[in-house]
Computed example of a mutant assay.
Amino acid sequence: MRSLGETAILSTSQNSVSNSQSSSQPVYMNYVLISALVAFALAQSIKVFITWYREHRWDPKRFIGSGGMPSSHSATVTALAIAVGLQDDLGGSTFATALILACIVMYDATGVRLQAGRQAEVLNQIVYELPAEHPLAESMPLHELLGHTPPQVIAGGLLGMMTSTIIYLISHSGNNA
């Protein structure tokens, strides 16, 4: 019969062995990382197609630009949090950390970053109306698409949830057979 201390040590050593085995997978097999990156790429790609649909022009800058529908920041952090929860359990501290990170990023996207974009829009209008001889009249315009509206953040979050869930189902379908 083992003592309580021996059981705790055995349990800790078994957890570290299982953690080291799961972390020895190559990066391209990292389901959590793949989910976050795919969600980001999908959100950015959707922005390009939305721009094409609305404005009838291709804008490859939308692949790397911020702002717009859907929020790639929200898609990325939501996919990350859901993937961690599906892989490591919803009751763990890793999921809690990822969830809080996702909430902060999405709150910031609709708060500070959205307001900074609106301020940039107003400042650009003021500079545009300056007389030509004013020293700021020739300045470069500020970037206006910084933040997101709540619908853009929600769409990004839903995209992130769907992406990580689909990738989880695909990557774990062979394990059930």
Rank of each mutant, 00 (worst) to 15 (best):
A83Y: 10
K47N: 10
L123G: 06
G111I: 03
I126V: 13
G117N: 04
L37Q: 13
I46R: 01
V27F: 00
M69H: 14
I64W: 07
P60E: 06
W52S: 14
Q87V: 15
V127H: 08
G92D: 08
L86K: 05
P70W: 05
S93T: 11
S74V: 10
S74L: 04
G65M: 00
R62L: 10
L90Y: 09
D59V: 11
Y28G: 08
M106F: 05
A116R: 03
A132P: 07
S71D: 00
A98W: 08
T51C: 15
V38D: 03
L37H: 04
N124P: 00
I82G: 07
G68E: 14
M69I: 06
A43V: 01
P60S: 13
K61Y: 14
A83N: 03
V112H: 11
G91P: 10
T78Y: 01
Y31A: 11
P60R: 12
G111K: 08
D88H: 14
R113Q: 07
Y28S: 13
I50K: 12
Y53V: 12
S66C: 09
I34K: 11
A83K: 08
Q44I: 06
R57N: 12
A36F: 10
C103L: 15
I46H: 01
S72N: 04
G67T: 04
I100E: 00
N30P: 01
L90N: 03
M106I: 12
A109M: 02
Q87D: 14
L42I: 13
L130I: 03
S45Q: 07
A132F: 07
T94M: 14
A109G: 13
T110K: 14
R54H: 12
G92Y: 01
V27Y: 08
Y53W: 15
F95W: 13
S74R: 04
I34N: 15
Y28L: 09
V84G: 05
E55Y: 15
R62I: 00
T76L: 15
L80W: 05
G92L: 05
V105Q: 09
V77F: 14
A102L: 10
V122L: 15
H56Q: 08
A39G: 07
A79C: 11
K61F: 11
V38C: 06
P26T: 08
S66Y: 02
I34V: 15
M69C: 03
K61V: 08
G91W: 15
A109I: 01
Y107S: 14
L37R: 07
P131H: 14
R113N: 07
Q125R: 15
S93A: 08
D108L: 14
N124R: 03
L86N: 01
G111H: 08
L130W: 01
G117M: 04
L101K: 00
Q119V: 04
S45N: 13
Y107G: 12
A39E: 04
V77A: 03
V105P: 12
S66L: 05
V77K: 03
E133F: 11
F63H: 02
M29G: 09
T97M: 14
R118I: 00
L114G: 04
A132Y: 01
I34A: 07
D108S: 10
A43D: 09
I46M: 05
L80Q: 06
T76G: 02
A81C: 02
Q25M: 12
L123T: 12
R113S: 15
L42F: 15
H134D: 10
T51P: 04
Q125I: 08
T78Q: 06
L114E: 10
K61C: 06
I50H: 09
R118G: 00
F49A: 13
A120L: 05
Y28K: 13
T76W: 06
